[in-house]
Amino acid sequence: MEVVEMLEIQKDKIEEENKLSSGERLVVLKDKSCRALVEKWLGNGVDLHLCSVVGIDNEDAIQVLYYFMDRKDNTTVAVAVNLDHEKPVTDTIGDLIGSSVYEGEATEMFGIEFTGNEIARVFLPENWVGGYPLRKSWKKEDYFDE
């Protein structure tokens, strides 16, 4: 199976569909997790490659953007989930496909909790107390004296 076909089948899970400026499909999910979607893909033998996991701080919600590629036919698709701004929680897909480190980065930079992912620190020191630096509301003065 290929990603395009699978998305046809899973149409009911999609809230809206856009296009990035670079031409890829941007699929926003109704759910707060893309785990079920990816599980289904892998179960149906999609040769899936995960390029990256991008956290984005929109003012009203925290968005997590998974960027997938199908190695078979070279189609790319971006899957986005919108999470609660105050307490963003979603499921990890680290055990399905190698996303643990990307998710860990999103955790430390945006405070997104990936349930089931053990990695919470990738770049920042273990005793970091500076909050979530890539959030738009983050100010240096709130955490550091200088």
Partner: peptide, 20 residues
């Protein structure tokens, strides 16, 4: 206005940039 992903084959592998 808009967001885009660009991926190119850097010497060491796929290089991924997302801009918004």
């Amino acid at each position: 206005d808009g967001s885009a992903v660009s991926r190119i084959e850097a010497p060491r592998g796929e290089n991924f940039h997302y801009v918004d």
